[in-house]
Amino acid sequence: MNLSVIDLGIISFKEAVQRQIRVHREILQGDSSHTLILCEHLHTITLGRQANTTNILDYKFIKDNNIDFLVGVNRGGDVTYHGPGQLMGYLIFDLRNLGRDLGWFLKRIEGLIIDTIAAFNIQGNIKSGFRGVWVNERKIASIGIAVDRWVSLHGFGLNVNTDLRFFDIIKPCGLDIRMTSLNECLGGPMNMELIKRELIEQTAESFELIGSKEYLCI
């Protein structure tokens, strides 16, 4: 099975959702294979279906800084922040031929993130009772997916060079936690293109897919 990769660069959350829906439809119609969409977003706060609005700590900051604010996003998880420097990986995967196993799929996503950051000498872990990838007690990547007719949407956000101060305006995932980034862990900004390449390789490996060396930049 093949892995298609689409790099959308910096794009709004809404546009990325539209693109995911298009790919999702193509997969259901049999016109596309498993697809990894990579992008970064403009400053955005999103709340998943089960989110609690009390986990927004500073509405004034959101309003004053024109941060996109989206409620009821069709993904699992509570509230989170997206913005420049955070690498989004949207996995539009056909779970009908990957065992129809949500638990396995979420674990694989965590695994591929751990393997990606390990290539940059950062030891990531999973934490019992919590999703996402952690470095010591700080969270470096958050996960939230949707599955419609056994084809997945959404995915994860990996903090590469994210300005972590933006997480102070929320309780990320509804938890009293600190976030971290590759930049913070390694003490300097990271080359996003290198991270993308590693992530593509680890995604293909994790799901035993054939990834193309060249990927689409749209």
């Binding site: 069709n74 949500l102 996960i143 997916i145 599955v147």
Partner: peptide, 30 residues
């Protein structure tokens, strides 16, 4: 956990119609 129903009582449904949205901690699905 039940998120919401796509249909009301008395409505006709076809095989394969999305009946109900459910959620776990990190995933939503129909």
């Amino acid at each position: 956990t039940v998120s919401y129903w796509h249909f009301e009582i008395g409505q006709e449904v076809k095989e394969g119609d999305e009946l109900i949205e459910m959620a776990t901690d990190k995933a939503v699905f129909n």
